[in-house]
Design a binder for these strands. Structure first.
Lengths: 160, 160
DNA sequence: TATTGTTATACTCTATAACTATA
DNA sequence: TATAGTTATAGAGTATAACAATA
């Protein structure tokens, strides 16, 4: 159990790291939106995916996912195949152009991050990545559990 | 110096924690936008501020800062005073309503985070906060230094 | 009847550029 | 001439709701 001051500082830091995200986005090729880069990276990491699963992995609504996937498909980076097991569903996979784009993105990220994070050890970076993943899990579990701390806090704080 | 795989994972995690930020934003009162909450928290933490300093702290353009501050001022949470030392400048401070709003926001954040982060120790949370702050510093220093890794990576990766 | 995915609409956040006022 | 701040405009990302097709 942590102190209230820490919670407020966490909220501030989460807002602030958005600037880092925007900086990384500026490294991308002109027609590759940050959203496209994430979609492609997810498909590469997890293999053939359904829309709903991709939306879950990105923690955004499926309607938004659909737009991002349409964009990436129209640019020839992603392919949508019918799912033989369920004709409502579509399976996503990387095209050769998509794989090529990901190699380019990875090269840019690596060059930039190797420069900015010169004084970071593997351990420190690994710790940060691990804690970020854990934070997401804690929030995801919270949404899924019946207690629903996130949803209830709004009303309860007003009442109290 | 860390491995390329870690850099890619960091980029993915930074994208993913945006979902946590959105979740926190949903806790806010209806007319308090996430941006307002951040602006008020910054003024509370750092005391009386100039626009340019606030923009720097939030790592966003001053034009955006100006809009957020106007919104918060129109809602009576923030006050803009003339700066006696420089009449181009304006000094920002919290109003009593702004302080009240921040207390409410803090209560909601604390309740929600105490629920979601039950199994986090003070140490783990402190480590995460510290590493996030360090990450921002590393990126900020990188932008400020003459090497400009972030800006150059785009062109260099293409050429190489 | 429920679920998968798409589309239409509206809202928030951000950056660039043009502008005003002051240093 | 340079700097502090504002405003107009455009673009990206997201959520909600209504819809089509299939389970």
């Amino acid at each position: 159990m942590a102190a209230q001051e820490q919670y407020e500082e966490l909220a501030r830091q989460l807002s602030a790291v958005a600037a880092v995200r925007r900086d990384l986005g500026r490294l991308l090729p002109p027609d590759c939106s940050p959203a496209s880069a994430i979609v492609l990276a997810m498909v590469q990491k997890h293999g053939e995916l359904r829309m709903s699963r991709l939306a879950e992995l990105m923690a955004i609504d499926m309607s938004v996912t659909s737009r991002h996937v349409t964009y990436a498909t129209e640019h020839g980076w992603l392919e949508r195949h019918p799912d033989p097991a369920d004709r409502r569903s579509r399976l996503l996979s990387l095209s050769p152009d998509g794989e090529e784009l990901l190699r380019e993105v990875s090269a840019r990220y690596t060059q930039a991050l190797a420069g900015c994070l010169q004084d970071w050890s593997d351990d420190d970076l690994g710790t940060l990545i691990g804690l970020l993943a854990r934070l997401r899990t804690s929030f995801g579990d919270c949404r899924a559990r019946p207690h629903q701390h996130l949803a209830h806090a709004a009303g309860a704080a007003v009442a109290g």
